[in-house]
Design a protein around this nucleic acid. Structure first.
Lengths: 145, 145
DNA sequence: GATAATTACATCGCGCACGATACAATGATA
DNA sequence: TATCATTGTATCGTGCGCGATGTAATTATC
């Protein structure tokens, strides 16, 4: 089919819409599981980053999560209020704020460890497809970042 | 590689995160183009639906966009305020509100017609990859919906 | 070492997303 | 035709996302 026969102004022919829709549907899938621990999806993303890079600065977290300070600052404050993490001013550079997980923050790593499997079993989404999708998305992200 | 060697609690091994990140990055790409017409990305989605199904009810729009009334009602009111559309109570069923595009709403179809091409040229993203990605996403959505 | 530029974070405002709830119009049932 | 359930929309509250702007700490330049 020639490209000229495709009406790119139709929702069906857009790449962006399935991207947007799938992202929200997946988030909805997570929500009931995370809600039990009073977490949101974005907070879960930040937690995963901290489990791997505990003590990271807000800027560093932002680079991993692709989020800016105007999203992260209030989010981290809510998580601090929930006793999941602490904010510690760096001694070498007082502009930096290092985010340290509390015991509860580490405990959540254990409590949430079953979530990936629960999701996989819920959706019975083919592993090959998932891998392929992940690769394509990561390539797209590398192009856009 | 055995599945057991993968730590699913690491951000790198999540499918959900690239989905979430890619969706936001693509939205950011649209924003400067849409901003010139005082539109948001979600409003653009709704517009595309209305160009194809002018006069649809809020519920029907929600089914296409996968959005609920608590998102759509205020969004449509803002678009009405911007003179893009009208809200008309159905005569046969007074619970239904039909959304009709104004002249300005139709005019936007012409004005925004260059956006898809502009995006494609901005990203030089391979067409094959895009098609493949679109198919995988649509399959995923069909599984989740 | 005073001045200017940069960096890291905070704040503000607005528009989604979405669960929960309310409410009026309609349809179904006895 | 009363009663009850369903349907379509509206409203409320909370938490992102993010552009724009502000501020304090640091670094660079003279």
């Amino acid at each position: 089919m020639s490209d000229k026969t495709i009406d790119h102004q139709m929702l069906e022919n857009q790449l962006c819409f399935p991207l947007y829709a799938a992202s929200r549907l997946v988030t909805r899938l997570y929500q009931p599981l995370l809600e039990q621990h009073k977490l949101t999806y974005t907070q879960y993303i930040v937690l995963m980053i901290l489990w791997q890079y505990d003590g990271a600065s807000i800027k560093q977290i932002g680079e991993k999560a692709l989020l800016n300070t105007n999203t992260l600052t209030p989010l981290l404050k809510r998580m601090q209020l929930a006793n999941i993490l602490e904010r510690v001013k760096s001694e070498t550079d007082e502009r930096l704020i290092n985010i340290k997980l509390t015991d509860k923050g580490w405990q959540l790593k254990k409590e949430l460890s079953c979530i990936p499997k629960q999701l996989i079993s819920q959706t019975n989404y083919d592993t090959n497809n998932a891998m392929q999708l992940k690769n394509l998305l990561e390539y797209l992200i590398s192009q856009l970042k």
